[in-house]
Amino acid sequence: MASSAPPPKLYTDDVSLIVIILDTNPFFWGTLSNTTASNFSFSKFLNHMIPFVNSLLLLNQLNHVVLIAAGVTSCGYIYDSATAVASDGGQKVPAVCSEILSRLEEFVAKDQKLGNGDLRTVGGVMSSLFSGALSLALCYIQRVFRSGMQHPQPRILCLQGSPDGPEQYVAVMNAIFSAQRSMVPIDSCVVGMQHSAFLQQASYITGGVYLKPQQLDGLFEYFTAVFATDLQSRSFLQLPRPVGVDFRASCFCHKKTIDMGYVCSVCLSIFCKPHKKCSTCGSEISHSQTEQLDRKRKLSEV
């Protein structure tokens, strides 16, 4: 995992740059609040999240928090603690809260306007633009790296709940790999009802923490106990881990888990049986090798 960028000049202690990615998908939040099983609404979520931002800023004067909202049709920066309040005397808490809320409102309104006329039916719950938000976060972190001055240790915290969008898979994986190269851990906190494969992968590959809280009314406690830990302390703390995550591949044709299979050399899609043509990229697969192998296998089976 060699990174070509020069090692960033990090502070030696717990100064952190935390980029928080919020899920502002109204369909998800609306459905969640309608589900009787959960007692959670967007306002309750904000009730936990904004004080958490305050607590992060409290921990260290030089801590830097950035909020990015992942909407349905767009994503954007909501809040940046470095540019938010001009004065040096520390950000006043009420100012922070009101700023976040007003910017959030603006963003949601804009998101709605952009999405109007988009008659995507709501068969399942639509996914939010997670890949876009992740890219925004990584770009911001890169900009901080290249600013030349000493900077805090960055990490990304994803507060997602919407289901994963299959069309975003490639983009999300690319983002995850670039985060891995820049050594930026991606923490995930899933507030929805289902687990998210994207976030599991992200946290596993980049060395972050993946958590799906059991009790959403104690969300603030989850935040402070797990996600507020700075990177330096993580090296000698044990943080909760999901057990038994399975990253084995499954074939594209039947979706069953396989150990050995055939891989298309062009697009790297996996099949359990040899095909003449790859169904993902359409390239022809030459068969001399596979035929020989087949013949051999047939003989041995007999």
Partner: peptide, 16 residues
């Protein structure tokens, strides 16, 4: 709180 070592900060915050 800010003067505490990082681990102490975490403990104080999580028992808040």
């Amino acid at each position: 709180l800010r003067s505490l070592p990082p681990l102490a900060k975490k403990y104080a915050l999580q028992l808040l």
